[in-house]
């Protein structure tokens, strides 16, 4: 048994003439929360379908917990250990929430107690006996999450899980992901709401055109992207001395108003600049903002388009 939950090795897949995945290699250790990012058509859904055994690669190998999800005789057993929340989620409109969850639970071999507990945890107990067709988008999404969590999966694949969720439900979802991670669950998180997932993922993989553009934790990605960071200063600065030094070191300064300044600096200049700033008697406050996941993603995506 390896320590890896997922291994993709040189995976290629075509839809007719279109190369959906072009030699992707990716290893995800057990217990990691990884963000799978990319624009529409980047290859995210295809990757997920490969992991779920719904597609087979034209070449290369896919392993989930050491098992080929499409062809292995153990694939059946593997599916008991995977929870999946699809992007375009839909259920049987004529069934109630409870009946829906019962059907899926029976298929997965989960207990009735677990169904009730999950309905309660996702906040659907009060509406469990209503038909799903009367549910709001957010309620359907919560029911979808409940079915994905049936049988305490070792791998959880969530495709746009926050669509339709209100801010409280969204926060609950991220809290749950943090707890699952502590329990050793591997989580794959696909989302376009990058600000939301930033704090909850260990690593991100950015896909475009069926290839991996970037892979790493946020620090590694920031380093690779070499994006400038912003330092906001409140107070007053002696103008002449500052303007002369910033041009030489790649630092730029923008005066927002009489008492606020915004420095834009490469990462390498951050510490020297901060040292100088703290010595200035007129400086009252310094706020550092590092490039967000969104900025990193935008950077890599624009690089690919160029």
């Amino acid at each position: 048994m390896t320590q890896d939950a997922i291994q993709l090795d040189e995976v290629t897949l075509r839809y007719g003439q279109v190369k959906a995945l072009d030699g992707i290699s990716l290893t995800i250790p057990r217990g990691e929360v990884i963000g799978l990012l990319g624009h529409n058509g980047a290859g995210k859904t295809t990757t997920i379908k490969l992991l779920l055994g719904l597609l087979s690669p034209a070449s290369g190998a896919v392993r989930v917990f050491d098992t080929d999800p499409a062809h292995s005789p153990r694939a059946h057993e593997l599916r008991r250990q995977i929870g999946y929340l699809p992007e375009n989620l839909s259920f049987y409109p004529q069934l109630s929430g409870r009946e829906t969850l019962r059907y899926f639970a029976r298929l997965k071999g989960a207990s009735p107690q677990e169904q009730n507990r999950l309905l309660q945890e996702v906040g659907l107990s009060h509406a469990a006996d209503r038909r799903v067709k009367t549910y709001s988008k957010g309620m359907r999404q919560r029911l979808g999450l409940a079915q994905a969590l049936l049988n305490q999966p070792k791998l959880l694949i969530l495709d746009e899980p926050t669509v339709g969720l209100d801010p409280v439900a969204t926060r609950d979802l991220y809290n749950r992901i943090d707890i699952l991670k502590q329990q050793g669950t591997t989580v794959i998180l696909c989302s376009h709401v990058l600000a939301g997932i930033e704090e909850h993922i260990d690593r991100a993989v950015i896909l475009a055109g069926g290839r991996i553009l970037a892979l790493g934790n946020l620090d590694e990605l920031r380093h690779a992207a070499q994006l400038p960071m912003h330092i906001r200063v409140r107070g007053s600065l002696p103008e002449e001395g500052w303007m002369s030094r910033i041009g030489e070191q790649g630092v730029s300064l923008e005066r927002i108003n009489g008492s606020q300044y915004l420095f834009t600096t490469p990462e390498s200049e951050k510490i020297p600049l901060l040292r100088t700033l703290v010595k200035e008697p007129g400086v009252k406050d310094i706020e550092i903002s590092e490039p967000s996941l969104e900025a990193i993603y935008t950077f890599f995506s624009s690089q690919w388009r160029m």
């Binding site: 779920l52 055994g53 719904l54 059946h76 057993e77 599916r79 008991r80 995977i82 999946y84 699809p86 375009n88 989620l89 839909s90 259920f91 049987y92 899926f104 298929l107 997965k108 071999g109 079915q147």
Partner: peptide, 14 residues
């Protein structure tokens, strides 16, 4: 078309 098939096929049933 309803969208339930893809979810069903990720369950342990052939």
């Amino acid at each position: 078309e309803q969208g339930t098939l893809i979810l069903l096929l990720t369950y342990p049933l052939q």
